[in-house]
Design a protein around this nucleic acid. Structure first.
Length: 271
DNA sequence: ACTGGCTCCTGAGGGC
DNA sequence: TGCCCTCAGGAGCCAG
């Protein structure tokens, strides 16, 4: 379920706990994630040192000398570091065990996440190569969104959530950013004015930055690698607030479905 | 080329 | 207490 802030919070949590450690072995309890967990992991990783813990979009990149482990948390994935001998929980599917006895443990009830292995440049992996810019990159700007959306009838909210347009903006932050930018979520992407895309770019960046600072958003079960919940939940202006009063104008927050996802908005503030 | 719909899977919560 | 229904933070794939 994590969006970019939750993945970044996870990255920051696990990095100091695994960087420089040597893998002893990989234990796969259940290989049936989004794609089957590659048997390459158990062959390639033993003896390898974690050289870097990076993020691209919602993927975590664990870099080793011989390749990169790409981890996607899906909707319900969690990573935590615990002693290998500590008690296992239901839905602990994969463990990367280090020579110091600690273990990077992947838990994912719905199993929508993935563990992919690539020996080559991870940015050229099929799952990553066609992704759009990072929201904090210089090439994510108003004119870019304006051009990308030209002539498109798709509603602006699913447009914003399209990882080929910009990465990392999931269902919660898409609603929040559109609220902050004053744009109705069901407006056709191609009808949004360039000046409104400028507001949207700023809104996306502000919201994601604030959410990262708060350690992510916990709706149901997000927790960081150290088990802390996210504290951005208290700052959500519209998400999950259907029927309640808009914090800005007092109108009733409404809910509608766009692209099979719940969207929340203020009919007065957003046009 | 776009768009909407379906899909993977488990669990929580509401209504009866 | 239990059953059934809907919904959930992602995103690939398919038909039209």
């Amino acid at each position: 379920m994590p969006e970019l802030p939750e993945v970044e919070t996870t990255r920051r949590g696990i990095e100091p706990l695994i960087l420089g450690k040597t893998v002893e072995r990989v234990v796969v309890h259940n290989a049936s994630l989004r794609w089957p967990v590659s048997s390459e992991l158990a062959i390639q990783l033993p003896g390898q040192v974690v050289r870097a813990v990076q993020r691209r979009a919602k993927y975590l990149l664990l870099k080793y000398d011989v390749g990169t482990l790409l981890i996607h948390l899906g909707m319900t994935g969690h990573l935590r570091v615990a002693p290998f001998c500590s008690e296992k929980r239901k839905h602990d599917h994969v463990e990367v065990v280090f020579t110091d006895g600690s273990s990077l443990r992947y838990n994912d009830p719905r199993r929508f996440g993935s563990f992919l292995w690539t020996a080559g440049d991870p940015l050229l992996h099929p799952r990553l190569i066609s992704l759009g810019p990072e929201p904090f990159d210089a090439d994510f700007h108003a004119l870019y969104l304006y051009r990308r959306s030209h002539g498109r009838k798709l509603a602006v909210k699913p447009f914003l959530m399209d990882a080929q347009v910009v990465v990392g903006v999931g269902n919660i932050y898409a609603s929040e950013a559109l609220f902050r930018a004053g744009i109705a979520p069901d407006k056709a992407a191609g009808k949004v004015a360039r000046k409104d895309y400028a507001k949207l770019v700023t809104a996306v960046q502000e919201i994601l930055a604030q959410a990262i600072d708060a350690g992510g958003t916990t709706i149901k079960d997000f927790a960081s690698a150290t088990g802390e919940p996210g504290y951005f939940t208290q700052k959500l202006a519209v998400y999950g607030r259907a029927g309640e009063a808009c914090l800005v104008c007092g109108a009733t927050v409404r809910q509608l479905r766009l692209g099979q996802r719940s969207s929340y908005f203020c009919p007065v503030c957003q046009r």
